[in-house]
């Protein structure tokens, strides 16, 4: 564990909490992509299957349980409790176009061809692109509430901080995982346009609105 990794995990946790607070306080999931949230739930379940096979640390186990539970809580709020506020007309991204290629890629490029390892790799690839339906929704509506922007910023920062963690681990421990690094770089690049808007608009107190 190093400072970048810890900051990344806390940023990830903050993102999830911000999203739950936004939905709970406004009693609405408007502006949030249920498709992205489904993909995140798939990511956590397929990655954290090792909860039942390998014990790493109490921290690791607790965080995994928090991520899985909170993603299902989010889905429950969006698709059951506040279903009426869900913006499904704008949330029209076809997730099979992400799920299938990621699965095929995981079958082809993985560290070892075993069910758990392929599913772990699938989750890494899928996480890299899971935010696309959300970014697509923001681009369709042309704006995002400020708390949604904070959520996206925290979620994007998490993998960017992991990139620093991987650079650190490469030098400090000689550890590197090309699959995670490659996917993490793509994941971070996808947020760059959003980061730019967040820094130039939201941090200056303006609403995140896309140029027409």
């Amino acid at each position: 564990m190093n400072i970048f990794r810890l900051a990344g995990d806390l940023s990830h946790l903050l993102a999830i909490i911000l999203l739950l607070i936004k939905i709970w306080k406004t009693r609405s999931c408007a502006g949030i992509s249920g498709k992205s949230q489904i993909l995140f739930a798939v990511v956590y379940v397929s990655r954290y299957l090792d909860l039942v096979t390998t014990f790493i640390s109490l921290y690791n186990t607790l965080m995994k349980l928090v991520f899985i539970t909170s993603s299902f809580a989010t889905l429950y709020l969006m698709y059951v409790k506040f279903k009426a506020t869900y913006d499904h007309n704008h949330d029209s991204f076809r997730i099979e176009f992400l799920l299938l290629p990621c699965f095929v890629l995981a079958l082809l490029i993985n560290a070892s061809f075993t069910p758990l390892e392929v599913l772990w790799t699938f989750s890494i690839y899928l996480e890299a692109v899971a935010i696309l339906p959300q970014l697509f929704l923001v681009s369709k509506t042309g704006e995002a509430e400020s708390i949604t922007s904070h959520y996206l910023f925290a979620l994007g920062s998490y993998r960017a901080l992991y990139l620093l963690n991987w650079i650190y681990r490469y030098y400090a421990e000689g550890h590197y995982d090309l699959i995670a690094i490659f996917a993490g770089a793509i994941q971070t690049i996808l947020y760059c346009d959003f980061f730019y808007l967040y820094i130039t608009k939201v941090l200056k107190g303006k609403k995140l609105q896309l140029p027409a």
């Binding site: 995994k64 000689g174 090309l178």
Partner: peptide, 10 residues
């Protein structure tokens, strides 16, 4: 240096 999986990460 050896390639390892980041299974200790989240």
């Amino acid at each position: 240096l050896k390639h390892q999986n980041s299974h200790d990460e989240l």
